[in-house]
Design a protein around this nucleic acid. Structure first.
Lengths: 326, 326
DNA sequence: GTGAAAGCGCTAACAC
DNA sequence: GTGTTAGCGCTTTCAC
């Protein structure tokens, strides 16, 4: 039969160390202002280690009200590997504050986010795209103390990406730009932000805004976009992401259009296969580390009761990876 | 100031419905053998809905011992979009059983898995690659009642993939096969399983086992592998995954080797950009849905106290997506 | 059929 | 400094 595998409880530790459970609690959470003799302290820590004691998070959070669990809601998008880098950064940064990150994939057939939030007892919920006020309210009622991004804010971080892309092409002499928006409707909002960045760059350079076109991951739609662009005199295209960029690339090659001579293409994310494209794809990569830290700061501040936070709007450090597609 | 946002508690529902908390609990969990009048039942359900009552998972699991939370441990690998499809299937299948799935990305800088398990109070833990006995024990002590895959078992599901790949190439007349193992060390185990499948297929067809070579996501290593293969008379290559396959493809093109005429290549996963490769990449896609259901069955059985489960070894339904790289 | 009461493992006042 | 005590929100036996 399955071993019931009794967990080690805080009482076990207390007994083995010859102190009370309260003392154990104090030591393990090293609460300040409880001058406990170093000897006792060490003994308790020792015993806990030896017994492989692991605080029962469930009980702890019930008692304390806090849970130290942060829930990351990932939209059900065909997101690539870049997201896992972000998640990892986030988890690491949160861990430094004693917070535990778990992820929930939003998919329609799974459970609704507020349910998940209530089930795991998350203290904070982080999303990729901003939550609307109703969603925020629902999450709060489900126990979340902090919900990010709060309003239509966070996506401001997307703007610089488009700007960098366009600026790069403009730098290289392109005067008429195209923008490839992915066909997937869920990307719409994000794409609009990035396009805005590209538009800003064009206007700042005295050029016309980019000619945007919808591009799916197939030669059909990509081909149509490419011919339209060429017809309009576009010589450089910013793609929403690398997948879309690769579709543009493939379509250009398919139509006998030389890249980058006749059409330059730049993506976003620097996915693993980007260097393997023909020609290798120029891409833009943003500093997930910085973004993650920023998010974590906001959470920690929020949990500590401070309102939103002082400053720092969109400090997404964006890095350009130049390859031969531009 | 931030609204404290008092949660609706089961007591609130009880009061509003004019019954006791016990009754509310019975109705909401519809426990059998508690013949409760349909009228009361409906009233309680109604009130709960109206009050947006959401059971406090934390308290519930503390009281009941169960938690209905399943933790998926995702290895920190450059896994692509296929994983998110799998996660989604899993979440949906679990939801049907009232179980909630959350994911933890394993990364070294995050918190150790047993800690996460204890913190969220997971009832079951699912991994991608088998856990060794020590890990299983640690997770059990952290509160997990079921841990999958238990031993070096689950990966048997990988074998058919390699088999199908090789069989496809053999079918198309290839007599000498190559196998592209990814350079990333963490894929080693999985790759070995898939290679085993490919080897099986070769032997069954009276051919020599595939010539395996390590291929990173760069032209360097891929190029070396390709020239080695060509020198050895290899005409068809099974790649561990699509990324690796695309590296092989790119290297072949770079070396002026025609695909598929001189070298055919087949990948795994059918990632979004696979059709965009030059030439479009033949791939193998497995039925995540079936795999997910299988996993869920094992979990539900395990949670119900039944041991491992009756049968069904490796029923991964594998589907071939034929494109022009083979 | 429904309610009262005893905890689940832990934290946090408050006494000693 | 350390132990005692009262819950956190819920489930679950056991009376009514």
């Amino acid at each position: 039969m399955t071993p019931p595998a009794k967990r080690t409880t805080s009482a076990d530790v207390a007994r083995a160390a010859g102190v009370s459970r309260a003392t154990v609690s104090y030591v393990l959470n090293d609460r300040p202002g409880q001058s406990i003799p170093e000897a006792t302290r060490r003994r308790i820590l020792d015993v806990a280690q030896r017994l492989e004691y692991r605080p029962h998070g469930t009980a702890r959070s019930l008692a304390s009200g806090r849970s130290d669990i942060v829930l990351l809601a990932v939209p059900d998008l065909p997101i690539g590997a870049s997201i896992s880098r972000f998640v990892e950064e986030l988890a690491a940064a949160l861990a430094e504050h004693g917070l535990t990150l778990v992820t929930h994939l939003a998919g329609a057939r799974g459970r609704p986010l507020p349910d998940v939030c209530a089930t795991v007892g998350a203290t904070a919920v982080i999303g990729f795209t901003p939550f609307d006020p109703d969603a925020v309210r629902a999450l709060q009622r489900a126990g979340a103390q902090v919900v990010l991004p709060p309003a239509a804010d966070g996506d401001a971080a997307m703007v610089p990406i488009g700007r960098i892309q366009a600026a790069h092409l403009i730098d290289r002499g392109h005067q008429r730009l195209g923008y490839a928006v992915p066909a997937h409707p869920d990307f719409e909002q994000m794409a609009a932000e990035r396009l805005r960045g590209a538009t800003d760059a064009c206007i700042a350079a005295g050029l016309a805004p980019p000619l945007s076109a919808s591009v799916g991951l197939d030669l059909q739609t990509a081909g149509r976009a490419v011919t339209d662009w060429i017809a309009a005199g576009v010589t450089g295209v910013c793609a929403f992401n690398d997948e879309t960029a690769m579709a543009v690339l493939a379509a250009a090659v398919h139509h006998g259009i030389r890249v980058p001579a006749e059409l330059a293409v730049i993506g976003v994310d620097d996915i693993p296969v980007a260097p393997l494209a023909a020609p290798p794809l120029t891409s833009v990569r943003f500093d997930l580390h910085a973004v993650a830290r920023r998010r974590v700061d906001l959470i920690v501040a929020g949990l500590a009761g401070q309102e939103p936070s002082p400053e720092s709007p969109a400090m997404a450090a964006v890095q350009l990876i130049q390859r031969s597609s531009t």
